[in-house]
Design a protein around this nucleic acid. Sequence first.
DNA 1: TCGCATCGCTAATCCGATTTAGCAAAGGGA
DNA 2: TCCCTTTGCTAAATCGGATTAGCGATGCGA
Lengths: 341, 341
Amino acid sequence: MSRRRVTLADLAEAAGVSRTTASLVMTGRGRELRISHDVEQRVLRAADELGYRPNAVSVGLRTGTTRTIGFVSDTVATSHLAGDMIKGALEAARERGVMLFIGESEGDPELERGLLHAMQDRQVDGIILAAMFTRTIKVPKDIGPAVLLNALPRPASGLPSIVPDEIEAGRSAARVLLDAGHHDEVYVIGAGPTLQDVPADSVAAVERLIGIRETGLKIAGARVCPDWQPEHGLAATRALLADHRPRALICLNDRVAIGAYQALAEAGLSVPGDVSVVSFDDHPIASWMWPKLTTVALPHYELGRKAVEVLFAQMAGEVEPGQVFRVPMPVRHRESVVARA
Amino acid sequence: MSRRRVTLADLAEAAGVSRTTASLVMTGRGRELRISHDVEQRVLRAADELGYRPNAVSVGLRTGTTRTIGFVSDTVATSHLAGDMIKGALEAARERGVMLFIGESEGDPELERGLLHAMQDRQVDGIILAAMFTRTIKVPKDIGPAVLLNALPRPASGLPSIVPDEIEAGRSAARVLLDAGHHDEVYVIGAGPTLQDVPADSVAAVERLIGIRETGLKIAGARVCPDWQPEHGLAATRALLADHRPRALICLNDRVAIGAYQALAEAGLSVPGDVSVVSFDDHPIASWMWPKLTTVALPHYELGRKAVEVLFAQMAGEVEPGQVFRVPMPVRHRESVVARA
DNA sequence: TCGCATCGCTAATCCGATTTAGCAAAGGGA
DNA sequence: TCCCTTTGCTAAATCGGATTAGCGATGCGA
């Protein structure tokens, strides 16, 4: 039904010129290569009439660049938490006329290799290696131009990294409470009080704690969670409330905060009247909770954008080997923190 | 640093044969074209040693098929709700050795055209046109092999569609209540009682209502919501409770149910003790609510898988023009429904 | 008028594979 | 021994562009 695609040869014939000339005009090198204004117009008009669009596969083969990048993640692509990362990458890519391949390795190195190969075979211009949770990863050999998103290379690899600025986020959370007059009776749920008391492999936990402590906020106590799920937050907060009467809680993420809300309600304590709560991540649920949760947001969208920007900057030679880009985590002020009486 | 890729020419030279022979062996047509076992082994060994992998761009140019498909959505790709759709598509694609381009049109037809062009220019073998919420869409001309995901073509277009089976889901939700002995005093929140009382353009609302009513469940009353957000569910349920004392609620999605929970709590009613609640979507939040919400799940993952399967079936000529595939919506039995005393 | 530069365009090659057509050598029948 | 197949492989064309090298015509200075 639909006619064969219009090729450069068709265009050349329609305009009555050689394929070379047609190509020169279409790639904008007409001026440079002394094609007359008259012929140029003829070609452009024909291109318009025929609806000529160059075959990107052919261009890719000839030039070696496909205006395509690969986005390989452990599972981020489809996660309910971090889809915005893809969105940021997608928009930054579109602005550059670049398409995105996506793939999920599910943490399987064999699968990851396969995906990287499939992408390299398709001549992607670069690759974004993304992780669901901020962590260190081993970088495959011969990966070509690449950046790490939400991840740091385990042995230094020279690849640039883009990560959320968790330490500053920790400071921000603490400052939210300090600014509200909470100088003591502040407890931490999810990790702490020492940097050893954290869920396994959690870069976020460690850095958030560091940031919190740097502000000088006095941490009255803390409860670790083996994992940051609502039920763990619930259990940890219940345990805390058995012996203590907090005036403020720093929950190490929003899911933990859900559990904390629950435990506080059980204990007959109101948020924020009796206890102020501040958290991290800005999971969508944070603005559905009641009262709405004040939280320090993971900037997924910005992380995704930045990854593409850095990838291109790197290909242009504008990035130091191993450079780490920290993306600020903004505070979402909502209803769960109130000034201390 | 990393050596130039190994090409077919390199392989041929290493094996001491012509490029033709090397190609025949590598594409498995050696037998057919009478290449001797000896030579075949020589080529295979060389390929293994050199780590030869065919350049997919070149193959794409020559054969016209790229083992690549495009996934274009209004916004589904990055939505917190439907990332699983991508995941299903991704896995089904991987099983077939196919890569996925993704793109988001954000509902902008101009942007959509651009994305489709970018994909067609890259010679994708087929396209999945996906929608965030089930709805009817206008299908662009000359789209080539394509399927509609979570969408139906506005003027019939011959393209196959994959949609969740919302009518059966409505029946399922009603049956959950009927099975628990709720034959009356059941109210609907979000739409109804008639098929005109629905949010604009909501296929889901209409079909869920149809299914609910088909079971013969007596709907004691209903409240429409302009949009299915928690605050609307809250308002609608408050309004309902002002005049009525329900024993069960069918919320038309989980976000509405959050609001309903809130309103019930305000009114001093417990779930499920006083009021059973059943809902739709199985948003992640449903299993975090307290008590955990019984809900009829949108099978995002299965929808995504099915889209890829149908796309390939269609290219193989195994699909009727305009065929509609309805994917079952399973009930997630949790804690919000209890047998009526 | 001759030689040379410039102008305006095109022929030919290349990218890395697949595929068609065909060639040289060996085998088989008369 | 001659001719015809069959066997086993390869040369060459092709996909759709980008790019290099170069060709004929014109203009200019000497």
